[in-house]
Design a protein around this nucleic acid. Sequence first.
DNA 1: AATCGGACCAACCGCCACATG
DNA 2: CCATGTGGCGGTTGGTCCGAT
Length: 250
Amino acid sequence: MGRSPCCEKAHTNKGAWTKEEDEKLISYIKAHGEGCWRSLPKAAGLLRCGKSCRLRWINYLRPDLKRGNFTAEEDDLIIKLHGLLGNKWSLIAGRLPGRTDNEIKNYWNTHIKRKLLSRGLDPKTHRPIDVDRPFTALKQQDMSAAQDSTASEKYFSGDEEGGSSSTGRHKGCNLDLDLNLDLDLSISLPYHPCQEQSSPREAKAQATPQSLCCHLGFQTSGPCSCQNIPKSLVLFSHSIRPLEEGQHTA
DNA sequence: AATCGGACCAACCGCCACATG
DNA sequence: CCATGTGGCGGTTGGTCCGAT
C-alpha cells in the first residue's frame, strides 16, 4: 500500500499563485489562523494543495517577512550558522527574523556558495578544497580577489591563528571550525554525529530536527521530545538565542 | 531587434518525524 | 507496538528577468 497523496492532485492548481488566491489565503488565515493545512484549501475556497498553501504563506504572504537584500550581518550570521548546522535551513532561518528557510537556501545557493568556491573553500565543510594548500596562503589570494565587501569577507579572512588551526578537529565534522564566533555564538562547539554520515540520508536519519530546534531555542512549532540530545549540544543551545528584531551580532 | 545564457527565486516533490488511534 | 495521517524540511526544478553578444 503506497502513501496516500497529500491532496487530490487532479483538482488542484499548480504553478504561480494569482493575486486572488493570495487574497483568499490571507483572509482565511487572518480569520482562522494557521494550521490544519490539509483542510484549509477547501475551507478557504482554494484549488490548491495544503502544502502549497502552507509554503505560500510561510515563504511569501506572512506579514512579518522581511523583504530586500540580506545585510552584511545576516550574511555573516548565515555563514557562521551554516558552519555549525550544515544545511539546516529552518534552524538558520529561526535565527534570522523575517527570513524564511527557502529564502536563505536560495541565497546560499546563489550567492554565498559561489563566494566560497571562488575562494577555494568547500561550501559544505568551509574548508579549503585543496587540503594540501595552507589556509594562510589562500587567505592572501582570496583577499586580493575579493570584489564585494561584506561581513563574510571578514569572516573568511579573519584571524590568522583561527584560520590556520589544524589540531583537535573531528574528522568529517564541520562543527569544529575555527569560526571565531563572537558574543552569543561564542562557545566550544560540540561534536554532532550527523555531520559524519556518508550521505545526506544517513545524516538526516541521525539528526533530531525538532528536538534540536527546540533545544536551540529557535522558533518552532509543535512539541519536543528532548531525549537524545548530547549534553554538549544542549549547553550549546543555551548560549544562543533567536535575534530580536533589529539586533545585530557584532 | 533577436537570441542566448546565466542568475535568481517561487514553487514543487519526495521523504522523514511526530502525533494519534 | 503498529498503521496511518499530517506537518515540515531539504533538494530540485522550471519560469522569469536581465545583461551580453
